[in-house]
Design a protein around this nucleic acid. Sequence first.
RNA 1: GGCCUGGUAGCUCAGCUGGUUAGAGCGCCGGCCUGUCACGCCGGAGGUCGAGGGUUCAAGUCCCUUCCAGGUCGCCA
Length: 590
Amino acid sequence: MRRTHSCGALRASDIDQTITLCGWVHHRRDHGGVIFIDLRDREGVTQVTFDGAVCSAEVHAQADRLRNEWVIEITGTVASRGDNVNPNLATGEIEVFATSLTILNQAQTPPFELDEHAKVGEEVRLRHRYLDLRRPVIQSRFLLRHRATKIIRDYFDQRGFLDIETPILCKSTPEGARDYLVPSRVHPGAFYALPQSPQLFKQLLMVGGFDRYMQIARCFRDEDLRAERQPEFTQIDIEMSFVDMDDVMAEAEGMIRSLWQEVLGVDIGPVQRMPYAEAMLRYGSDKPDLRYGMEIHELSDWAPTSGFVVFQRGVEDGGICRGFNAKGAAEALSRRQLDFLDKEFVRDYGAKGLAWIKVGNGEWQGPAARNISPEARAELAQRLDVSDGDVLFFSAGPKRVVEATLGAVRVHLGTEMLGLAQPGDWRFLWVHSAPMFEWDDEARRFVSVHHPFTSPYADNLEILTSDPGACLSQSYDLVLNGVELGGGSIRIHRPEVQEQVFRALGIGETEAEEKFGFLLDALRYGAPPHGGLAFGLDRIIMQMAGTDSIRDVIAFPKTQKASDAMSEAPGPVSDAQLKELHLLSTARND
RNA sequence: GGCCUGGUAGCUCAGCUGGUUAGAGCGCCGGCCUGUCACGCCGGAGGUCGAGGGUUCAAGUCCCUUCCAGGUCGCCA
């Protein structure tokens, strides 16, 4: 070992010791006769002092050459800082008077300052990620991630879960996200798909008798990216045999509880549960953010009597009318902001506008207010608990548009405009019993809300074919502050039920056998009842680290166009490679 | 695929209604400095204003196309 200590280790108790440190030059302060170097490694920063009266002229001259990010090794004596203690450093009580200096490597001037105070754009940081990763704030996130995965593995190990790896080269299956494909050399014209999740394999592990499985698994989805979405991401994947919903939820909740307890020192308390239908009604979302109120109310029965033609027509045309009360928000919301919500914000969600009413001094102001009859107003005041200083929001029209619109406005108010969401406020919620299917207008068929292997409730089996849209699933999603951390379900373990579900999805018998034959076969050979769940590890870490981008907790993330700013992947390959894979590119090379 | 925001020195940004030689802070380079700790002082270098085209006497600024980055809707079983 070259070094005796890390740069975060030395304390007053080490005074007078002769020690050796290695690290990067973090800052240098050259006073002529004395040169101070802040030496940095993963563990911290130590001040190294080159004093002309202590070290040799040669060493002092070498120290004079040092620049930021040079890699050095120093040997010297630990000394008290006396009156010059630096309270911002863990090692601030001491400094090291260097007597020898070895320059292990020089460094070009970095493209950006690694100083903790410097503001640097993400683009440059990602292009030189290896430099960005040296910054203590960044390193602390990966320390956190390491601790978390260790706790997760230990938690499941103690509870009898086996960590088993599943294939990366898989078969492409219909449904779900776009696959990343890998061409086969030995099977001309055939392709592997990278797993969107280990879903089928973990079910087969249950058929294989492993009873309890866990894996921290890499997953791949070729869809457009978001702040909380990457083309490759990591799931905490679990599956259990002979269980019902409560069993899986209890295990998953226990894991989350110990994570928050051991990493953040936070007791998350009991986790609320809410049926999907209730979440959609009260919050306009399948992942409600419970950090603020503003619950949405059904007003479809009130709308026809409201006197306001927009509300009336919305309901007459087969839609709904709902609204909510932003209590006491009148002062915080300017006319300009309300206009933005009405004329810009809600357009993204398919709404033509957003009706709002500002209540002040008993007066109801806003475009919608004058149209509402006094009687309707009185009823509304009672139903939405209206008082002075409130702002009311309404939407009328197709159900999905109204839900999406009010849900989005509510979140925008809570997190942005009114700033009601406080850091350190952890509101966990299980959203369960989602519908099995959802009608897809474009595909003109039902699609799975969860996935095609999700089991309906036993007492919903008879409507599986007669009324698929009304059939509810044994599913559960864990939501934290409006972010879906993960979800799962009890799976179908009887082949005839699985076949019925495929049929409801418009997957014919031939296609089912071709794409999922191995699963159906497996179910026929004595599959145990089973269920499981998968969490998005990156999203969990992101929440714990208090950042708002998944890229912050992935060492080498991709950009929004799914490329690597550093290695510039993906890149072209030679014609010879293509030929070997029986591929011909249709992309133009101009 | 749609919408929105941004791209000016190595970094972070300013640059008005189109008008002289495009600026600041930090960083960098040189000099000075024995108690700093985001050291300080003096001096200096550094620009394809993302790219291409257009309008104009004149474009960082206006228009069109395009590339890149980010946000978001669609999409993400």
